[in-house]
Amino acid sequence: MDSAFAEIYIRDRRTSDRDPRMTRTPLVPDAARIGRTALTVADLEATAAFYRDVVGLSVLAETETTATLGVDGTALLVLRRDDDAPPRTDDRAGLFHNAFRVPSRAALGATLERIRDRSELSGASDHYVSEALYLADPEGNGVEVYADRPRAEWPRTEDGKIGIGTVSLDLDDLVSASDGAAAAPPGTTVGHVHLEATSLSASRAFYADTLGLQVQTESPSALFLAAGDYHHHLGVNVWNGRSRPADGRGVAWFEFLVPDEATLTTVRRGLAAADASVTEREAGFEVEDPSGIAVRFRAE
């Protein structure tokens, strides 16, 4: 970051060291959230059926090569068939999982019933801030479906950050809370996206230092970052030693939604000042992160 933007960041950071009341305004504001996520797939029909019948999304639009799924008319997932895209190899960066957040424990219990009936559960955890179910789609892409605990119950660390942990989840208790719904209810969103990166330090420089996401929880091999005071909108890990940029099937892009066009313009200018290559896309723009994963920005 040897740009004018970096100079502003360094100056503001030094100022904040002298006066903790003065801090740099992040490019991605506190009100931002994850919008849609997109996958490149080989078997469009089977993958769309999985997200419809197991995750509980509705098919909002489809062609021979694409399918858009969501809830209550809001698009959350875009699937694109590409017969020429090679399978993702073990050394490629990419998606760890897309995480769909349902608005209640009853909805999460219903999801567990659908998973048991039509798919296979690969994991389940209580993360203190949420309860989560894990599985994979027919193409091997990781999927999490989770429900947040009430925000007042989220644990805090001594420095005020949100504490995320992992303990076992009582599945019998969860399924007893099910409302039996056959589909995800209104209020379902993509709560966060979790990536497998080639470099944790480079990912931190891009997502935290440049975009201004707040690191909520970290370890030597993973970061969990958020816009504002959410537990995390983005997870990044290097657990599996991915050494090459993302390519082929798997994550095509994911997006941050910002509140308005003025904010979108601010983010675009800040990234350009940080020497990021910005590509215009529908109603917004796109940049690549250090692992070659496309990140889009769009106004609500």
Results as ranks from 00 to 15, higher is better:
A31F: 01
A38W: 02
E45C: 01
T40H: 01
R36F: 04
A46L: 11
F50L: 07
V54S: 01
G35S: 11
A42N: 08
T37F: 05
G56S: 06
A32F: 01
D53C: 11
Y51W: 14
V59W: 00
A46Q: 13
G56L: 11
V54L: 06
A42S: 14
G35A: 11
T37N: 03
V41R: 01
T65H: 08
A38S: 14
T37R: 10
R33K: 12
V41K: 00
F50I: 08
T63N: 04
T37G: 15
A61V: 07
L57E: 09
A49N: 09
E62I: 03
G35M: 08
T47F: 00
S58R: 13
A49H: 06
E62M: 08
E45V: 15
L44I: 08
D53E: 15
S58N: 13
A49D: 15
V55D: 09
E45S: 12
V54E: 07
L57A: 04
T37M: 12
D30P: 14
I34A: 02
T37C: 13
D53V: 12
F50E: 03
T63F: 00
L60Y: 05
T63A: 00
T63C: 04
D53Q: 12
A48L: 05
S58I: 04
T63W: 00
P29A: 04
G56A: 08
G35T: 10
P29F: 02
L60T: 11
T65R: 11
T63M: 02
E64F: 03
A61L: 03
G56C: 06
F50Y: 12
V41T: 09
L57V: 09
T65V: 13
P29V: 13
G35F: 01
L60M: 07
D43Y: 03
A32I: 09
R33H: 12
V41G: 05
R52H: 13
L60Q: 06
G35K: 07
T47V: 13
S58T: 14
G56P: 09
D30A: 15
V41Y: 00
T47I: 06
G56Q: 07
L57M: 10
V55T: 11
P29D: 05
A32N: 09
D43M: 01
T37A: 15
V59C: 08
R33S: 09
I34Y: 02
D53G: 11
S58W: 02
A48I: 05
A38C: 05
G56E: 07
L57H: 00
A46P: 01
D30M: 08
E64M: 09
T40L: 07
P29M: 07
V55E: 02
V55A: 09
E62D: 14
D43T: 06
A46S: 14
R33Y: 05
R52Q: 13
Y51L: 02
A31E: 14
V55K: 00
A49L: 12
V55M: 00
A61C: 06
D43K: 06
V59D: 02
T37S: 13
A42F: 03
E62G: 10
F50C: 07
Y51D: 01
G56R: 05
D30L: 03
A42V: 08
E62N: 12
